[in-house]
């Protein structure tokens, strides 16, 4: 595998697109203060199909702000706020 010094600007592709899927939730340990996914939701989990409670999911909100590589330009979709000049 290839280990690079990444002190400089984040190269493409992003961690978001290259990270692999977790296969087993038991293999993951979270830093202190981070809640693990509710275990009763995943008692019978298999094939990497996990269920997540809201408290667990909300912990990602402030960390995952990077725009996905494959998100099209919002202006092209017409997906802009109602204060920014749509013709109505």
């Amino acid at each position: 595998s290839n280990t690079k010094n990444e002190n400089i600007a984040q190269p493409l592709p992003s961690a978001l697109s290259t990270a692999r899927h977790i296969e087993s939730l038991e293999s993951v340990s979270y830093p202190e203060g981070i809640k693990s996914p509710a275990t009763d939701l995943n008692r019978d989990a298999k094939d990497g199909k996990f269920r997540y409670d809201r408290g667990f999911l909300l912990q990602f909100m402030e960390l995952c702000k990077e725009k996905p590589d494959n998100l099209p330009p919002m202006e092209a979709l017409g997906l802009v706020g109602d204060l920014s000049g749509h013709a109505m």
């Binding site: 990602f60 725009k67 998100l71 919002m74 802009v80 706020g81 204060l83």
Partner: peptide, 27 residues
């Protein structure tokens, strides 16, 4: 219009944090 597909929690939030919420949608 199809905006995007995703299959992880991290990608969901990347999307959520880069599109407007319902309160700002055009009527």
């Amino acid at each position: 219009k199809r905006v995007i597909s995703f299959d992880s929690v991290e990608e969901f939030w990347g999307l959520y944090n880069n599109i407007i919420p319902p309160s700002q949608l055009p009527q």
